[in-house]
């Protein structure tokens, strides 16, 4: 299977590469539309700032390329946020695949620290990505911005309030958490994506 990772100015894609390697996949890292068209699956991972990453994506005309992908695409962390309509991080318009806006966490109690960092449980899981996983499965999150629960939500988590841990629409999948850092549960989610 040919797996491509979207190359852009976001950090920490090594851990996604390692996670794929552990599943016997050698991904290519590219920003070339031609290469994408040859791939069976595409991953859009990353950590970074919504404004700086979106600016880069537009400058390199990757926005249209990503929107027009036909094979299964998995956005991870900032990847999920960039697939939404707009982000409060830098007040920037994003790819608009999911018709929902990304908000900043507003802590209401001292114990609600931002970023939301650590292991949190998934609820209301549905669809192919979560096949075979028990409710309340724990996955690893690191983020300060979140996607509210919406019609595209396929898994929820709760921190300060319930939010979208995962989204899906047609061939576009996304997780706010890091499956590549979420132990055996995360590995299963990546496997489920590769099996689509």
């Amino acid at each position: 299977m040919q797996v491509a990772i979207v190359k852009y100015n976001a950090g920490n894609i090594f851990s996604v590469v390692h996670a794929l390697n552990r599943l016997g996949i050698n991904p290519i890292i590219t920003d070339d539309a031609e290469q994408f068209s040859k791939a069976d699956k595409i991953l859009f991972p990353g950590q970074g700032h919504a404004l700086t990453t979106m600016t880069y994506i537009r400058e390199h005309q990757l926005d249209r390329v990503i929107r027009e992908l036909k094979q299964p695409v998995l956005g991870i962390c900032v990847g999920q946020q960039l697939m939404c309509s707009h982000s409060e991080e830098g007040d920037v318009d994003c790819l608009g695949i999911f018709d929902v806006d990304v908000k900043k966490f507003n802590p209401t109690r001292h114990t609600d620290k931002v970023p939301h960092m650590g292991w949190n449980s998934l609820t209301h899981m549905k669809g192919d990505l979560y096949k075979g996983l028990p409710d309340e499965s724990f996955v690893y999150f690191v983020h300060s911005f979140y996607v509210p629960v919406c019609q595209w939500t396929v898994a929820e988590s709760a921190y300060i309030q319930p939010f979208s841990a995962s989204l899906q629409k047609d061939n576009f999948y996304a997780t706010q958490f890091h499956p590549e850092k979420s132990g055996s549960i995360g590995e299963q989610i990546l496997k489920n994506f590769l099996d689509l």
Binding site: H18, E180, K181
Partner: peptide, 8 residues
């Protein structure tokens, strides 16, 4: 470690 371990 990064290649072999799937937790942070």
């Amino acid at each position: 470690v990064a290649a072999n371990i799937n937790i942070p």
